[in-house]
Design a protein around this nucleic acid. Structure first.
Length: 597
DNA sequence: CTAGGGTTAG
């Protein structure tokens, strides 16, 4: 006869709640969690050292950090595990500074951080690329002796190598000093060198390392892709002993970026397994090149394949739409988001505002912008820029005042928008005023972009000499965009001599850009100086450069139609040109005067 | 530790 051993109730209850909480980890249902929390509090188990961390993690997964912190505060003497759990919770909810205050609180309570603490903290700083923060953690790690652990120094190498060239040097020093290195140490170090652009050294370590896994291959592959060396990348890709989704995606991304959509598509179609990322890359690639039809077809196929959009996919595709003005695809993405009741993060809303604004749908952009409860500086900048770009200079400046009233501090990007608004509204003196206040009142040192805006502002306003003097007085080296802007202004105001001067500087920076020569040629033509026109043409010929004919395109029913000068390839050319003539006559009747070249 | 991600002049 056996007597059943009864487990004390509190132990069984604890097990029960632990089980309930780990179930909650899988589905983050806040209402359910709150019920369980109430039951736990009733049985006083919220103080339990095993239950409390699970509760914090569950609240963290539901993005309820206030409740998570509340659980933590109920504990009189939190142990290391509990501190670590809260630190990790803050990081998972993108609150790195709160993670650090928890860390400092932990230290002042006399608690010793362990290797988990440091791993979490390093994760918190890895996104910040702040060398002093990584150095601070490194110092703490050295004092506590956790350098013998392999995870912590590996994370240190990774965090260091995201902090520029000084960081990579520190990473290298640590890497060399380690008495034991595993494949992750090597991969992190190679990844750091790749990020710093030191492909040669990265390759040297790659060849030197004792054992390579798929991550090692993918890392060096990405190095070649980022350097635009697709031939070398392809060779490596073929040599790889094993390829995973990342390897294939890296290649697809590389070909997309170099504009070789045929190769990108071929590899994409050959991929044995696809997830959201390669779909995103190929769709964004097509969208960036303005190939709306392909982009839209693939977007529909992606949805048919049952893939659910995420933040990365939406932001990436919308950004590509904004860049090439693909309003059609942008609307399709937006419609899909509304259909699936996608919960917009701040970044996603900003991407929508930017897409609609850049594509000229200012009313839609404004509606989303005004509906945002959590606007940040990026939202304001995107909206301001959109208004300025499309000729609503005055409205853009009004938005600038509203933004300041609501307590947002303008940044360098804001001023690019403000100056652009002044240019498009013709407010030359206001522009000069903002350019000066920018540094004086806001402490923003003008960058080459701001000078670019100013050259455009003065140039379009006909103050070409002032623009030229500003370029000469710039503390930064003028780039091709700066000179190109001035050249454009010269064309606008038929300033032949200055244009010649500007072209000399431009040729040094962009020797083979045909556009610059053709602008000069247009300026000569407008002045009736046909000898100089033919001189420029001869010069271009002798240099072996050719200006591709300009083309414009527009999108009708998801199809892009391209138009070039004197194009007669369309079967209905006669009717089309007849219509254009009629339109031209009508325009003249209502007073349009074409620009003379 | 590796692939996609919001605002920057013509």
């Amino acid at each position: 006869m056996s007597i059943p051993i009864r487990t004390p109730t509190w132990v069984s209850k604890r097990r029960l709640f632990e089980q309930k909480l780990s179930e909650l980890h899988k589905c983050t249902n806040l209402n359910h969690l709150k019920q369980v929390h109430a039951q736990i509090v009733k049985t006083n188990l919220h103080q339990d050292p095993f239950v409390a961390p699970k509760l914090i993690t569950a609240f963290s997964l539901c993005r309820q950090m206030a409740l998570a912190v509340n659980v933590f505060r109920q504990i009189q003497e939190p142990n290391v595990l509990l501190y670590n759990t809260l630190i990790r919770a803050h990081i998972q909810n993108s609150q790195p500074s709160q993670a650090f205050s928890t860390f400092f609180e932990m230290q002042s309570s006399g608690m010793w951080p362990d290797n988990f603490t440091y791993s979490f903290l390093l994760k918190a700083v890895s996104g910040q690329s702040s060398l002093p923060l990584v150095q601070m953690i490194h110092t703490h790690v050295e004092k506590s002796g956790f350098c013998s652990d392999i995870f912590v120094p590996n994370s240190l190498i990774d965090s260091y190598s995201k902090c520029g060239s000084a960081g990579v040097r520190a990473a290298r020093k640590l890497f060399t000093a380690m008495n034991e290195r595993d494949v992750v140490s090597w991969n992190s170090m190679i990844g750091g060198l790749v990020k710093a652009g030191d492909l040669g050294e990265a390759r040297r370590l790659f060849d030197e390392m004792p054992e390579r896994d798929t991550v090692s291959w993918n890392t060096i592959l990405d190095g070649y892709v980022k350097a635009g060396e697709m031939t070398a990348a392809f060779e490596l890709f073929e040599k790889m002993p094993e390829r995973n989704v990342v390897s294939w995606s890296t290649m697809v991304s590389g070909y997309s970026k170099t504009g070789d959509m045929d190769m990108a598509r071929m590899l994409f179609d050959m991929m044995p397994i696809k997830n959201l990322v390669p779909w995103t890359i190929i769709i964004s690639g097509y969208a960036q090149k303005g190939l709306a039809k392909e982009a839209i077809t693939l977007f529909n196929q992606m949805e048919e394949a049952g893939l659910k959009l995420d933040d990365g996919t939406i932001i990436s595709i919308l950004a590509a739409c904004a860049e090439s003005g693909l309003l059609g695809l942008g609307k399709i993405v937006h419609a899909s988001m509304e259909r699936t009741r996608f919960k917009c993060s701040n970044q996603v809303s900003n991407a929508l505002v930017d897409m609609y604004a850049k594509c000229g749908s200012l009313d839609k952009a404004l509606r989303i912008f005004n509906g945002m409860g959590n606007r940040d500086i990026v939202s304001w900048n995107a909206m301001l820029q959109g208004l300025a770009m499309h000729g609503h200079g005055e409205k853009a400046l009004q938005l600038f005042f509203r933004m300041k009233e609501e307590g947002f501090e303008p940044d360098k990007v804001t001023f690019v928008g403000v100056l652009c608004a002044c240019t498009h509204a013709g407010f030359v003196d206001d522009g000069l005023h903002y350019f000066h206040t920018m540094e004086r009142d806001y402490g923003i040192v003008p960058q080459v972009e701001h000078y670019g805006c100013m050259i455009d502002l003065l140039g379009r306003g006909g103050r070409l000499k002032e623009a030229f003097r500003l370029i000469q007085s710039m503390p930064v080296e003028p780039n091709a965009i700066i000179w190109g802007t001035l050249l454009g202004a010269c064309r606008m105001h038929n300033a032949v001599e200055l244009a010649e001067e500007v072209l000399k500087c431009l040729v040094k920076l962009e020797p083979s850009d045909p556009g610059n020569f053709s602008i000069l040629s247009n300026i000569y033509a407008a002045a009736g100086d046909w000898d100089s026109v033919s001189n420029v043409r001869l010069r271009m010929k002798s240099m072996g450069i050719q200006k591709p004919s300009g083309a414009s395109s527009l999108e009708v029913d998801d199809e892009v139609h391209e138009f070039t000068v004197c194009d007669r390839s369309h079967p209905k050319s006669d009717r089309i040109y007849h219509m254009i003539d009629k339109l031209g006559q009508h325009l003249k009747k209502v007073g349009y005067v074409p620009r003379a070249y």
